[in-house]
Write a protein that binds this DNA or RNA. Structure first.
Lengths: 211, 211
DNA sequence: GATGCTATTGAGTGTGCGACCAATAAGCAA
DNA sequence: TTGCTTATTGGTCGCACACTCAATAGCATC
């Protein structure tokens, strides 16, 4: 008779239920942080009992790692999707760098800071972070190599160029959780400057393009 | 008569006791992480009761912030001490950058990652992080300005040059908790390259010097 | 419609945390 | 020596967490 109690059980296909759990966990990871990905929290969001989450993830650490992996993969796809043939590599790179400037990118920075810190205590998560790192690096590296192939980019070490861009992005994202004093324009432009320098592009090539 | 029980009370000067607590908390913060700075943990290290820590720090968050501040200040003093007059700014800067390459620096990177992440949930800590950030920036900026004054460095924006160096250091330190694949030499040299570029120094000027 | 598999629940265990507070004793001052 | 201030103790409370496991019920299969 109590109003808020839902006694009806909904039995789902294990694969679908698992995906549902991972999605909910990833959402929590993005909005609240990885330490908020708990059995109780995820169960509450899905209106099930905590024990059910344990059934799919015998160790909570596995769920946290999965949540991070899912969230990071999703953000990578939004930030740096596969390049359609009609986009020139330089244009695609410019779009990517433009997306890393907005406040929207802070969410991603927060997630990475979170994961890199929590990796200190969670070996399973640490492995997942390493995996995601190589995924992000790999996708940017592919774009760089594509640009070299078309002749737009010039570098004798695509890996070094790629990693240098990522290091700068990591450095700029480090402050996503703290109120940062207004930064000089030269600092805000560091990703573009670095990319243009390492890829042999004339200054200004990677600035925001229309559309 | 029980062997492990210490019933004797040691009453100390409040200022001394407080300093003792902060020191112990800073040590835990550096070695184990800020989330291990708990009333119980610090009390155990000092062989006192948790209630005593509460007496000096009514809120545990205050202790965590203090622990970070103490640890960060100590590390800054080791890493970038005040420049003695007999040291040329370029030589002092070269020493600083050399110290940021060793594995010893990983401890500092870990502390900063830790603090920047935990800032998300702890407003008191967040303020302390902002304070420490300006302290680190201030000290490096002073060194840069000194070099400009002596004519060794050339830049029209000392702040931008300073922050760019720090951003690169932050970016490289982001991986302190994860096993990082061997990085290209160009990446490892980024701090030196950035400093030389932004300060108008000939390449190689800031490489490791003898002594 | 009956049966069997298993997804899901409900209840309970143990741990570590911050916070709170009355009782106690150390050491200084009168 | 006596008395007072307060640093320090010991104990307790409530909360949130992961983890365990027997009981239950949804649903596909026969």
């Amino acid at each position: 008779m109590s109003s808020s109690v839902q006694r009806k059980r909904i039995r789902k296909d294990p694969a679908a239920r698992r995906a549902e759990i991972v999605d909910a966990a990833a959402a929590v990871a993005l909005t609240e942080g990885l330490e908020c990905v708990t059995l109780r929290r995820v169960a509450e969001d899905l209106a099930v009992r905590p024990g059910l989450i344990s059934h799919y993830f015998p160790s909570a650490e596995g769920l946290v790692a999965e949540a991070f992996g899912s969230a990071a993969t999703g953000e990578l796809d939004r930030l740096l999707p596969a390049r359609p043939p009609e986009d020139a590599p330089s244009r695609h790179l410019a779009r990517f760098l433009a997306r890393t400037s907005g406040e929207e990118y802070d969410v991603i920075s927060r997630l990475w800071i979170n994961a890199r810190h929590l990796s200190r205590y969670r070996p399973v998560l640490r492995d997942r972070v390493a995996l995601q790192e190589s995924a992000w690096r790999g996708r940017l590296e592919t774009l760089v190599r594509d640009g070299v192939d078309t002749g737009e980019f010039v570098t004798d070490d695509p890996v070094a160029a790629t990693v240098q861009i990522l290091v700068v992005l990591d450095g700029l994202g480090a402050h996503a959780n703290t109120a940062t004093p207004e930064r000089p324009a030269a600092v805000l432009r560091m990703p573009i400057t670095t990319a243009e320098r390492e890829l042999g592009l004339p200054p200004g090539t990677l600035d925001r393009t229309t559309g």
